[in-house]
């Protein structure tokens, strides 16, 4: 079963570039990537640029409206994701716990929808 691990955090709580904490976080992401790849469960994943680069769009009455900024005005923003394929939720949660930003943010674990036409 495939799960997406959505990485949410408040940018203000992230360790600053160049500090030992930052180095530790990067090392943590590196280790998490390696472990997922080595276990053969990693199916994808990307980090996102900051919310200051985000543009949101919706269509109202046939007209496209674009807005500067992210969809939701919350403190914690989506910063990236992994897609992994594992047997069950417990296994997915174990991998989610490897993501270093869980120490100051939140990882949301969501099963992907199964479009298997044989289903």
């Amino acid at each position: 079963m495939k799960y997406m691990l959505l990485i949410y955090n408040d940018p203000a709580l992230e360790p600053a570039y160049g500090t030992p904490e930052f180095k530790e976080m990067m090392g943590g992401f590196f280790a998490a990537n390696e472990k997922m790849a080595a276990d053969g469960v990693l199916r994808g994943g990307e980090g996102l640029q900051g919310i200051e680069t985000a543009t949101s769009l919706r269509i109202k009455g046939g007209k496209v409206e674009t807005m500067d900024g992210p969809f939701a005005e919350t403190k914690e923003h989506l910063g990236g994701y992994y897609v992994i394929e594992v047997d069950n939720l417990d296994a997915a949660l174990n991998y989610a716990a490897l993501i270093p930003s869980a120490h100051f943010g939140t990882i949301e674990v969501r099963p992907l929808m199964d479009y298997n036409p044989a289903g």
Partner: peptide
Amino acid sequence: AAARIPFAVP
């Protein structure tokens, strides 16, 4: 069922 919570003893 959907999130596949395992039927297992931890």
